[in-house]
Write a protein that binds this DNA or RNA. Sequence first.
DNA 1: AAGTGGTCTAGACCACGAC
DNA 2: TCGTGGTCTAGACCACTTT
Lengths: 249, 249
Amino acid sequence: MTNNRFDNKLSQTGLSFQPLYMQVEEHVKQLIVEQRWKPGEMLPNEFKLAEELGVSQGTVRKALNGLTGTKILTRRQGVGTFVSEHTNQHSLYRFYPIIRDGKTPELPKAELLSLTLIKAPKNVVSAFGAKANMKVFEVLRRRILNNEFCIFEKIYLPYVYFRELEGLEDLPHTLYHFYQTQFNLTVQDTTDRIKADIASAQDAKLLAIHIGEALLEVERIAHSIDGKIIEFRISRCRSDKYHYLVESK
Amino acid sequence: MTNNRFDNKLSQTGLSFQPLYMQVEEHVKQLIVEQRWKPGEMLPNEFKLAEELGVSQGTVRKALNGLTGTKILTRRQGVGTFVSEHTNQHSLYRFYPIIRDGKTPELPKAELLSLTLIKAPKNVVSAFGAKANMKVFEVLRRRILNNEFCIFEKIYLPYVYFRELEGLEDLPHTLYHFYQTQFNLTVQDTTDRIKADIASAQDAKLLAIHIGEALLEVERIAHSIDGKIIEFRISRCRSDKYHYLVESK
DNA sequence: AAGTGGTCTAGACCACGAC
DNA sequence: TCGTGGTCTAGACCACTTT
């Protein structure tokens, strides 16, 4: 067996054994979290990485291909391997499941209603699995599709990860790209819990609909690459002309 | 280049070129559709398949691993490669996203209300992208979780794929496994469109709730391995104690 | 033309499960 | 102990993109 920086006693015991290519995956992921390469940047080619890590090029390839599976990396033949960005068309829609009936997906605009630093309400604390005295930013937005309001959302962001939000007067429409570029927080996966509810007076006012109409309520928890919960949001969505799309494989 | 059964002129033109391992994937998938191996059966090992197809073992491996990605195959180290079944725990939950609030997933029971052969209504015809005179079986079911009715669903199955359903008095609870074993139709992926609606008098009666409560309405289209639409279903789900769960990566 | 990732092959060895 | 899939390496060649 060659001498490489991933050699360790565990490799021989079979107890906590991790295959080399998985160790490489973890290592590269960690380097990305530490911003050795930022989103959009190109990694060294397979042979250079292999030499640097003391493994074969084939092992590096398997690791890099694994990381494209989780959307952390993007590989382009003849060009190179890049840290994924939340900017390209595909990424932008990756976490936007609300579609106008009979249409193809389109990105909504967003109108910021407020951004305030508050003590987290109970449901938010529980979503984050955090301590009761947690401080969060509360972002209230209305989203606009087809020139009408379609979603009212409350977004909760932990103060500890988003300190620099304090005092901001406006936010970009594409929040996940903003998290990535400004806070080095890349949304890696989300869990949505979808319920139906009846429009309240507030819903009716904010979405220009009638009290009593049926709405979709979506509670989302978003995780970053390193597994932290970085966002909790509650979206109330018009359901007369819009739906939530899920494709399962 | 070796002489193998996948050699063809296209391989040299670069126009409709498909890598060998993809051709092997398609070939194996086709053999499964043709029932050379049925769900649950074991395939020959990598070397035998490689010899049979005239490619190297590494190429077969890449193809088989690709088919585990789409859940068509299951591989178990030390045991073999198997055609996936809709019976194991994981598969059973793969397409059941309705969860009781605060609980872990559990499989609902189903009560068959009716099974009739009808001329497909307009919305069903359009879901199948079919001709107006399409004949379908309409299955009406109530699903039971936590000892109460939680979902009322209408399921539409094309007569041409499901002839043998005619005259049946009862159906199993786990329909997708039933489709697979009785009709050689394996559900490969589903598209759900989720909306909110208000409970009608019929909903209220069938689900033992009140008129006017908010419900989730889920329209599902299910595709088989070879890409046919084999099922269209409309589910009306109680939303007071249940939600639809989506995990996106 | 140079440099990148993609494909294909070949062989050695390891880990796992069944017998 | 045997047969399976899993890992790791090595090298040749192909396809794509940029310069």
